[in-house]
Computed example of a mutant assay.
Amino acid sequence: MRTSNHLIGVLNFLTFLLSIPILGGGIWLSSRANNTDCLKFLQWPLIIIGISIMVVSLAGFAGACYRNTFLMWVYLFVMFFIIAALLGFIIFAYVVTDKGSGRPLTNRAYSDYYLQDYSGWLKDRVASDSYWQKISSCIRDSKVCGKMGKSFNGVPESADMFYRRKLSPIESGCCKPPTECGYTYMNETFWTSTGGVVYSSDCNTWNPDQGQLCYSCNSCKAGVLANIRKSWRKVSVINIVILIILVIAYVIGCAAFRNNRRIDNDEPSGEARMTKSQPSRLHL
């Protein structure tokens, strides 16, 4: 009778501990936004779900350990919606990050990023003019492009050495012009035009001014989308594991809830609830 209570107590203690990675995932996404408000819509769902799981796990732990039927009822009621919300978030994260990736380049270790490779709600959200102003401001404030400079024994990095670097999506999309523009490498964030034919609007948008670079380019928006996609996929793996554990805890919690109700109703265990009115005449 008490086995289900013990199991739900242990599982809720584990889900309490596992809610910490969910909170950590939300905070990590927040740090990827450079602690500004530019990508708040990414981390808040995870933070809210993480806090909810933490609080409900404590209620389930207390309800199981002290056989409190009311706490167990609250636990099961709220946990159902948390499981549904977490499942919805996982599906949403995979749907909005389904398309898009960097395009590999010949004789380059890094990839180029194109906005047309992405589609859907997340692309429209990030690429909107009102929202992109906040995001590009975050990238500028992070000084990610200014940190790209490298030197070896006091000698600045050469073009061949730069081409062998694995750049992040934001570094590739926002700090340099697209490779198709054919610009000449001077240093990591300073490229000059060869005066050839320009086929992309990003080639005209690129500006060697360190305050502008390619922050207004579609390639920069695509780099941000690629960065978000990578971050969300990592967090979703953790969420799937936690979702499986929550479902198991919920099923066992239902058994513990029935167990607590039997105890509250003084129902004996191990005895049949119905007895025969007349004994059977057949004896084996």
Results as ranks from 00 to 15, higher is better:
192 T>E: 11
72 M>N: 14
129 D>C: 00
151 S>N: 13
118 Y>H: 11
121 W>A: 11
26 G>P: 05
17 L>W: 03
194 T>D: 11
255 A>T: 09
97 T>M: 02
191 W>P: 01
153 N>V: 00
250 Y>P: 00
3 T>H: 06
160 D>V: 11
233 R>W: 11
195 G>E: 07
24 G>Q: 02
242 I>H: 04
221 K>P: 00
194 T>S: 12
3 T>V: 14
17 L>R: 02
278 Q>L: 01
165 R>F: 01
134 K>Q: 08
265 N>M: 10
87 L>N: 07
8 I>E: 03
35 N>R: 07
15 T>S: 13
233 R>H: 12
140 R>L: 14
38 C>S: 15
89 F>N: 12
242 I>M: 09
167 L>Q: 04
232 W>M: 13
12 N>F: 10
172 S>H: 08
260 N>V: 10
227 N>M: 14
180 E>R: 07
63 G>S: 10
183 Y>K: 02
176 K>I: 15
122 L>Y: 08
110 Y>K: 01
161 M>Y: 02
240 I>Q: 03
252 I>F: 15
266 D>W: 04
36 T>S: 14
144 V>G: 07
144 V>T: 14
113 Y>V: 05
212 Q>H: 08
99 K>D: 12
209 D>L: 03
227 N>V: 00
135 I>M: 09
163 Y>T: 02
32 R>M: 11
91 I>R: 02
16 F>L: 15
272 A>H: 13
10 V>S: 07
3 T>D: 02
97 T>L: 02
218 N>H: 09
26 G>E: 09
